[in-house]
Design a protein around this nucleic acid. Structure first.
Length: 240
DNA sequence: GCGACAG
DNA sequence: ATCTTGTCGC
C-alpha cells in the first residue's frame, strides 16, 4: 500500500503557506482561544482528541468549548506537527468559531515562526483560519538562545524568531509569532496570560483534552469496542 | 557519521 | 504526545 502521508509534499505546502504569513501586529483580544490535542491508542487505531476553548480576556471566563475526535493516521515528524494535529484541531476550532461568533487570538501548543521553514503549527493555524495566533512551546525546535537587552531571543539562521519567556517557577516557554502578531507583542501577550506556568487558554484546553482522554479509556474498560471505521469523525460538544 | 529533534 | 517504575521532597 502506498504511504498515507508524504513528508516531502507537506514541507512544500509549508513553503507555500509561508508566503501568506504576516509577522507583525498587536491585537488587543477580547476573545482568546486555546488549542490542544491529546491521543489515545484503542486497539490498532490511534485516536486524536482536538480541543478548542474560548475564554474572555482578563476574567478568563469560559465562553465555549469544542471537542473533535477522530482516528489519526499521520505520524509525528519534527517540523511537520501541524499535519498531524490539524486533523483534530481544525474541526474543533471551526466549530467553536461558529458558536462564539468571533475570535481575536488563538494560542497554540508548539512553535510558530521558530520553525525550520518559519511555519510551525501556530502559524499554520493562523494562516488557515486568517486569525492572529501565537505559538507557545515547552521545548525548543530550532535556533539558539541569545540574550540582548534583558530579553532572551530564539535566533535561527541569524534571525530573531522567538522569545524565551520565564514562568514564575523559572520554567522556560518558547514563544513565537503565529500569524498577524509581532515578536515582542506575542511575548507581551503571553506574559499577560501566564498562570500556573502556562497561558490560561493552554491550561484550560489541556485540562479538557486530558479529561476526554480519560473518558475514552473508561469506555474501553466498560467493554464497548469503539468501532472507529464506522464513525471516522465524531464532533462532540461537551461544554460550549 | 553524529547530534538534534514542537507534540 | 503516551507509557510507565521508582524516587525525592513538601
Amino acid at each position: 500500500m502506498k504511504s498515507l502521508f508524504s513528508p516531502a509534499k507537506a514541507a512544500r505546502a509549508q513553503e507555500l503557506l509561508r508566503s501568506k504569513l504576516v509577522v507583525e501586529g498587536s491585537p488587543s483580544p477580547t476573545v482568546v482561544v486555546g488549542l490542544d490535542a491529546a491521543y489515545k491508542k484503542l486497539g490498532n487505531a490511534e485516536i486524536g482528541i482536538g480541543v478548542a476553548v474560548a475564554l474572555e480576556w482578563g476574567s478568563w471566563k469560559l465562553l465555549g468549548c469544542k471537542v473533535a475526535i477522530t482516528e489519526v493516521c499521520v505520524p509525528y515528524i519534527p517540523g511537520l506537527l501541524a499535519f498531524r494535529e490539524m486533523l483534530v484541531m481544525a474541526p474543533a476550532l471551526s466549530s467553536l468559531i461558529r458558536t462564539v461568533g468571533s475570535v481575536d487570538l488563538v494560542v497554540v501548543d508548539g512553535h510558530g515562526l521558530a520553525h525550520p521553514r518559519r511555519l510551525g503549527i501556530a502559524s499554520h493555524v493562523g494562516v488557515a483560519f486568517d486569525l492572529p495566533s501565537i505559538g507557545v512551546a515547552k521545548k525548543k525546535l530550532v535556533g539558539e538562545e541569545v540574550e540582548e537587552g534583558g530579553e532572551v531571543f530564539i535566533v535561527h539562521k541569524g534571525v530573531k524568531v522567538g522569545v524565551v519567556v520565564r514562568a514564575r517557577s523559572g520554567k522556560k516557554l518558547y514563544v513565537s509569532p503565529g500569524h498577524k502578531v509581532g515578536l515582542m507583542e506575542a511575548a507581551h501577550l503571553v506574559r499577560e496570560m501566564l498562570l500556573d506556568g502556562l497561558p490560561k487558554p493552554t491550561l484550560e484546553a489541556d485540562r479538557v483534552s486530558k479529561a476526554v482522554r480519560a473518558l475514552l479509556g473508561s469506555l474501553k474498560t466498560g467493554g464497548l469496542p469503539l468501532r472507529v471505521k464506522e464513525c471516522p469523525t465524531l464532533l462532540g460538544r461537551l461544554t460550549g
